[in-house]
C-alpha cells in the first residue's frame, strides 16, 4: 500500500469529480468519499447504495461511460471514468 498515493485515480460521478485508489470498485471509491446514494429506483424513486457487495443483487447498478446497469460493487474505477446514476 506504500505506493497507493501514486495510484490515485480521478473519475466523475454525476458530473462531480472524485478520486479513488487503483483496484477499488466504483462503489467502494464513492462510499469512501461519503456518497450514500448510487441510484434511484425506477418506480419509487428511492435511493439505493450497495447491498450484497459481491455482484449478486444488482442493487448498485450505475451507468459507466454510457453502458447501463454496471454493478458498482464489481467494476473497478479506471482513470477518466464518467459514471452516473441510472434512472
Amino acid at each position: 500500500m506504500s505506493n497507493s498515493a501514486s495510484q490515485k485515480i480521478s473519475f466523475t460521478f454525476n458530473g462531480v469529480a472524485h478520486e479513488g485508489v487503483r483496484g477499488q470498485s466504483i462503489a467502494a471509491a464513492l462510499m469512501e468519499s461519503g456518497v450514500r446514494e448510487l441510484r434511484q429506483t425506477r418506480f419509487g424513486n428511492e435511493p439505493r447504495l450497495i447491498f450484497c457487495g459481491i455482484g449478486v443483487c444488482f442493487d448498485c447498478v450505475v451507468v459507466v461511460n454510457e453502458v447501463a446497469n454496471q454493478r458498482a460493487c464489481l467494476v473497478e474505477i479506471a482513470p477518466g471514468d464518467q459514471i452516473r446514476s441510472s434512472k
Partner: peptide, 28 residues
Amino acid sequence: AIPFTGWERPGVMTPGAAQALLKGHNVM
C-alpha cells in the same frame, strides 16, 4: 438476506458486503 422494514435503504447491507468493502477495497 431476510427483509425487514427499511432494508432497502442506503446503509443496510449484508455482512459480506461490509467485509468485502473492508478487505477488498480498504473502505469502511
